[in-house]
Write a protein that binds this DNA or RNA. Structure first.
Lengths: 341, 341
DNA sequence: TGGTCATACTAAAACGATTTAGAAACATTT
DNA sequence: AAATGTTTCTAAATCGTTTTAGTATGACCA
């Protein structure tokens, strides 16, 4: 059906190799022949077969995406989805398609592949790891396999990474809350997720810097991106003898659990209790009260991840692994009350 | 690096063809040899190369996804994303990966490929079209190319399709609104989108069946999944001399525009004005007021689409193109006021 | 004993590209 | 005139599979 290089060569009276060379810019082809080849390629509608080329060259122009499988949200994940969207767009500009790498793929009745095996099976040129379970042994195996890798949010020794300036963002958020007059500030941090641990540490440090005491029971472990778990955590905080006036949540999406509980208790945000999230999920900024949060630049994160990965693939000798930090922005929103007297 | 069939054959003292046949269940291989081959495959960690197999057999176990590019939402699209998520999950179960087919891909400096060319370039076994611009000439070309195709929401003559029971869903919604005592009901319908036209017709018909007059200016064309455009449309309706008591919107996400405008006008939902959406977007059901809407079963839609496509790929002779209709469910929510006296 | 038939394998071509080595044609140098 | 160099092409191998055709071996039958 599709036009092959053989069809072209027959049409032109050339050898297949000459046609291939002409198309690929080899210098031992005359300008005239090159022109004829290009003209014929357009005329006959020739398209190279990605898989044939991939077989011979070992390059597929396909990048693998390890995407948070167990988050339960998939493509609807409020933070990863827009990152992925941007990553895909940039990859496409550079001529790469993306393939999702899972740990449940099985080919012809064999048992499930690991991430690494799936990557090899599809011969991806590199892999971008967009998820939050970096302690998974399969992730470790993949990162150390030698395949070009970029991770999002969590740096690995000697590997490329793209992450928000979490520390700066968190600091700005906590300073803002404090500047609004809050003293009784609690934090719910998510697990399992390396990123929320970084934010937790930053929270503690910023409180200390401001000389604000951290009351007993004010740090609650919960789950990232999980409204249900966060709802319980908020309940725990509100039933303390000295409940906080402001609660910092693991992320915006999880704030839905907080909002639900607070409504059930017939309390008002922010008059009775203030909350803050992290991420800057667009849909939540379209509703009232607009949540006070830290905007992550998902567009830049995704784009930089793609660039970093493709650089690495195409110029692996000169590539220097590094972590690219992407600026965040405080969104003051409407969920932190002014407590100054 | 990776173990090939040749490595296996050398290890076992067999010909590559024997190994291949053993792995693929040919009957002219003795049971004993077959066992040895499988054992060696496991031991050496053999994984077939998808591209080599694809080159020879013409089957890549890859399905193409044409995904709403111009919606501006990408992976964050409130309706398509969960459909895609489910589709991907089912495809994976059946051993297929997915590849996004775009109309902007360019390989080695050539000009952008059409959807069909991109599909051929990647040798996908079939394509699922998940978008709302079915009049795009490139979509038509793809649908008629002979590649196995499944569409979502919009049937094509002689092709497989999966769609919600839009008519039943819309009817239920309108009947519910009427049962709540509303008489002045307006509709904002989205364009360009075939699906909202179906819903519009159904709205008109259901109104007629109930003997409720459709007042002048009560049908407003706007845009699907576009809060900004819908906001304007609502403004138009509210400035009518006889404004509606209830507005049916193109979809849940677009309702954000309606809510914004209504808040700006210092009106209350549903006391002053009732609204209803379509889709059943989960995040909006977690907030108050929960929007009155029609839940689309995105999980089933995605799964059925994958099944239909893979059936067609794997048994094309016996495949009978058909439209699978998926049931919808009315969510009464909190945005339609009780107007019965 | 020679012919037929299964059985269980091997050889080789093929898929569609790329790439290395080599060759033909012609020009240039010594 | 022979040697050398340039330019521009072709031949053939190769990537890792699958698949068709063919072959060796032994069994069975007449």
């Amino acid at each position: 059906m599709a036009v092959t290089i053989k069809d072209l060569s027959a049409y032109l009276g050339l050898s297949p190799s000459a046609v291939s060379k002409a198309l690929n810019g080899y210098t031992d082809i005359s300008q005239e022949t090159r022109n004829r080849v290009f003209a014929a390629a357009v005329k006959l509608g020739y398209r190279p077969s990605a898989i044939a080329r991939g077989l011979k060259t070992g390059r597929t122009f396909n990048i693998g995406i390890v995407y948070s499988e167990n988050s339960g949200s998939g493509f609807t994940h409020s933070y990863f989805s827009p990152v992925l969207e941007s990553l895909k767009a940039e990859a496409e500009i550079q001529g790469y398609d993306i393939t999702f790498i899972s740990s449940s793929m099985r080919a012809s009745g064999q048992k499930a592949m690991t991430y690494l095996q799936h990557s090899q099976y599809r011969n991806v040129d590199g892999v971008c790891i967009v998820c939050c379970e970096f302690n998974d042994p399969q992730i470790i195996e993949l990162v150390n396999s030698g395949i070009p890798v970029v991770t999002i949010d969590r740096p690995f020794e000697g590997k490329a990474c793209v992450a928000s300036e979490n520390v700066q963002g968190m600091k700005a958020l906590v300073n803002y809350i404090i500047s609004m007059g809050h003293k009784k500030i609690a934090m719910i941090y998510g697990s399992p997720s390396n990123i929320t641990t970084i934010r937790l540490n930053c929270f503690i440090e910023t409180m200390k810097e401001n000389g604000i005491p951290l009351l007993e029971g004010y740090l609650v472990e919960s789950l990232y991106h999980n409204p249900g778990a966060v709802k319980e955590a908020v309940a725990k905080l509100l039933s303390l003898p000295y409940p906080p006036s402001c609660i910092v949540l693991p992320d915006d999406f999880a704030s839905l659990g907080a909002i639900e509980l607070i409504e059930e208790r017939k309390l008002k945000i922010p008059e009775d209790i203030s909350i803050a999230g992290f991420d800057g999920v667009p849909i939540l900024q379209m509703l009232h009260p607009r949540i006070t949060t830290v905007l992550q630049d998902t567009f830049t994160i995704g784009r930089e991840a793609a660039k970093l990965l493709i650089n690495q693939i195409e110029d692996s000798e000169n590539f220097i692994p590094r972590t690219v930090e992407v600026a965040t922005k405080l969104i003051k929103g409407e969920t932190v009350a002014n407590n100054r007297r």
